[in-house]
Simulated assay, not measured.
Amino acid sequence: MAIRDIYETGFDEDIQTDSSTNQCPECDGWVTTNAVETVCEDCGLVIDEQRIDHGPEWRAYDDEERERTGAPLTAARHDRGLSTEIGRGTDANGNEISGQKRRRLARMRREQTRGRWRSKAERNLAHGLGEVRRLTSALELSDSVRDQACQLFRSAQNEDLLRGRSIEAIAAASVYGACRCNGRSRLVDDVSEMARVAESRVTNAYKTLNEELGLPAEPVSPSMFVPRLASDLECPDRIRQRARTLAEQAEERGVTTGVHPAGFAAACLYKAGREEGRWLMQSEVAGAANISTTTIRNHRDTLQQLDDEHSVGTKGDTERRGASAKSRG
């Protein structure tokens, strides 16, 4: 009985079973090919091995060996990272080149720069992706968020959403949209300040992207802004934890619907600081959240009202438990 009749075989994308050469030259048995070798399943004969690995080779064992492939493809470049770069002054091995060859490379570099973009749309795409990379670097965002923002800008251009809007505004809106989709606590003010674009233009561009592309952006809660504001204000861990507890309790009660999330988080930090004996100034907290001191006071009153209701409810529960204990006694 053959091995294939005893053990079950599953699907493997590396196994080739639809070829006419799937017969063993020795026993006419079943032949399978994976990423390493070609083997007969009946008699175990190795027909072919040491296949060519078409994958990249990133590691070089000495200075003489070079990588067989270049950098991986990336969405942060208009040509996916496949552009040609002409060096200056030295060759690939680091040796100095002559003056005549430097002048020739300069002429080649000039012509390569002129023919780098095939159309004006591709030039705009390169400029927009460069702006996205600059913003993500200034905001210290991760590479995954950067790639998502670049892909979002590319989708906006494909849907012809750049018409009538500036490239900088769409780039800033793409970065803000990627932060919203990943649950990052970033304000429109932060992105517009780094982008050197008016906040209203970034807001309008984001609304357009959200409506036309259907972004899976989740609502931002005040508890998401507590860690960032606490870090900016250099608050200790106990104040941060207390402020997050206050924000989560307010979210559960539904009082944070329709309010500015950063403003409510700032009010939670202000109240937590007062409870812990650290007097945070309202102007200082409001400046970190980019809101007014009136917003801080309004949200502080809301939090105080929630505490009063919780205290009354706890006192009533205690009295009811005491009355029931007396009746049983």
Rank of each mutant, 00 (worst) to 15 (best):
E284H: 11
E275C: 02
A247Q: 04
H260T: 12
D301N: 13
V285S: 05
L229A: 10
V220Y: 00
S231I: 00
R278H: 09
I291L: 08
A230M: 04
P261F: 00
G287N: 15
A289L: 12
G254Q: 09
E284R: 13
Q305K: 08
T302H: 03
T294P: 00
E309H: 03
A243H: 06
C268W: 01
A230D: 11
P227E: 06
Q282R: 13
A262I: 05
Q282F: 08
Q241S: 15
E309I: 04
L229H: 06
V285Y: 07
P219V: 04
R240T: 15
P227T: 10
I239Y: 02
I296S: 12
D232C: 00
D308C: 00
R253I: 03
S283F: 05
T302G: 04
L280Y: 14
T302I: 13
E248L: 13
E248R: 14
C268H: 00
Q282K: 11
L306Q: 11
S283L: 10
V255H: 01
V255G: 04
A267Q: 01
V285P: 02
D308Y: 05
V259S: 10
E248Q: 13
D237F: 02
G263D: 00
S283D: 15
P227N: 09
R253V: 09
V220A: 06
E276R: 06
T257C: 03
T294W: 07
R297H: 05
P236R: 08
R244Q: 12
L246W: 01
H299M: 07
P261I: 01
E275G: 01
G254V: 14
P261N: 04
R242L: 13
G258Q: 08
S292L: 07
Q282I: 04
P261V: 01
A289E: 10
E275L: 08
R238Q: 12
L306I: 09
E309G: 02
Q282Y: 07
S292T: 15
L306S: 02
V285L: 11
E252F: 00
L246F: 06
A243L: 05
D237R: 12
A266G: 13
E284A: 14
A247T: 07
G254Y: 03
E276N: 10
A262T: 06
D237T: 12
A265D: 02
T294H: 05
H299A: 12
A286H: 11
A286S: 14
D237E: 14
R242N: 13
L229C: 09
T256L: 04
T294I: 09
R238E: 15
Q241R: 15
A265Y: 03
E218P: 00
D301W: 01
A267G: 07
E284S: 12
F225P: 01
D308K: 13
R242D: 14
G287M: 07
A262L: 08
